[in-house]
Amino acid sequence: MLLPEVLLWQALRKRPGGFKFRRQHPQPPYRLDFACLEARLAIEVDGEHHARGDRPAADRVRNRVLAEYGFATLRIRAREVLSDLPAVITAIVAACRVRAPLHHRPAAGGPPPRSGEV
């Protein structure tokens, strides 16, 4: 991993907002930089090369394929991670909250659901 990815992973592994993140998550035919499976959110850290050549078109195709699997893609510039990591984390948590289910399943061994809950 490159420095922006290392810094982001150090923050995401603390489960900000209560969300669990995975790094280098396989989602064939791709490997996601980071993913929040609960929110079905793919987080991609983009360096400068993503703005050059055929990369923008390839990224659009990748986003479309991931959307077919139910993932939204949040693209973050590497320089944003380096310059303002707290703002990046805030944006990621906000995106997860928008996409996460309203109700979470109770933890194993927790109380049973109330009447009308699944």
Rank of each mutant, 00 (worst) to 15 (best):
E80T: 06
I76D: 02
P112E: 07
A72P: 08
L102P: 04
E117H: 14
A11G: 07
V93R: 09
A78Y: 00
P106H: 08
R13T: 01
V65K: 09
D46I: 01
R31S: 08
G110V: 01
R79S: 13
M1L: 05
D84S: 02
G53S: 00
R22A: 11
L41V: 14
R77G: 04
P4N: 06
R60V: 00
T73Q: 12
P101A: 07
D54C: 00
L2C: 06
A35G: 03
A72H: 08
R114H: 05
S83C: 06
A78E: 07
V6F: 02
L66N: 14
C96W: 04
R13P: 09
A72Y: 09
A78P: 06
P106K: 11
L32I: 13
H49S: 14
R99M: 11
V65W: 12
R55T: 01
L2Y: 05
D46R: 00
Q10F: 04
P101L: 07
Y69R: 15
R60L: 00
P86E: 04
P29T: 11
R31V: 15
G109P: 10
A35E: 07
V61R: 01
Q24W: 07
R114D: 03
L3E: 15
H104C: 03
E48M: 07
F71V: 10
L12I: 13
P4G: 06
Q10H: 09
G109D: 11
R62A: 05
C96D: 04
F21L: 15
H25L: 13
L37G: 06
R60F: 00
V65S: 03
P56E: 00
V93F: 12
Y69I: 01
A42V: 10
G47L: 02
L74F: 12
P101C: 14
R22K: 12
L66S: 15
H25S: 03
L85R: 00
W9R: 13
V61Q: 01
G116Y: 10
P113S: 05
Q24H: 08
L12A: 13
Q10V: 05
R40L: 15
A58E: 03
A51S: 02
H50F: 00
H50G: 06
P26Q: 12
A42P: 10
I92L: 09
R22M: 13
L85E: 03
R13F: 07
P111M: 05
A100P: 06
G110W: 09
H103V: 12
P4A: 06
L85A: 01
F71I: 04
I89S: 04
D59N: 03
H50Q: 01
T90R: 15
P16Y: 09
E80C: 08
D33L: 13
R60D: 03
R31I: 14
P111K: 06
M1E: 12
G70P: 12
P113I: 10
P29V: 03
P56F: 02
H104L: 11
P29G: 10
G70A: 14
V98S: 05
R22E: 10
A72E: 14
P106Q: 09
L82Q: 09
V45Q: 05
E68Y: 14
E68T: 15
V98W: 05
R114F: 04
Y30K: 10
E68I: 09
R15H: 13
